[in-house]
Amino acid sequence: MKLITAIIRPEKLDEVRQALINAEITRITVTRCAGRGQAEHVDIYRGLEVAPALAPKIRLDIACNDDFKQITVDAILGAARSEDGEIGDGKIFVTHLEECIRIRTGEEGGSAI
């Protein structure tokens, strides 16, 4: 099992969601978060350009069985990449997932995902 964590642009959320749904990946956790990568996020405050240290981002957490890892990653890559190749599209982290337990039934492993 894998845990796929993706950090994406907030405005790409709808497209990524749709791509995942099209790939039949529907179980997903979405969090509003902030972070700092290569990109700068500039706001204007009374004529002053202000670059906050942290840019708003969306974090997706998807747990999946090994077979679905590539499908999920491809779906996110396809939808989250911006057309003009600007920096700030985000990252995907894939980690090994040791255990998965469904709280309602207590079942464990791949079938609980």
């Binding site: 642009r9 907030p10 405005e11 709808d14 204007i44």
Partner: peptide, 16 residues
């Protein structure tokens, strides 16, 4: 499309 998805606040007014 890009600015509509990003939202009016940031893309048109530079604010949140």
């Amino acid at each position: 499309e890009r600015r509509e998805l990003a939202g009016l606040d940031h893309s048109l007014h530079g604010e949140h």
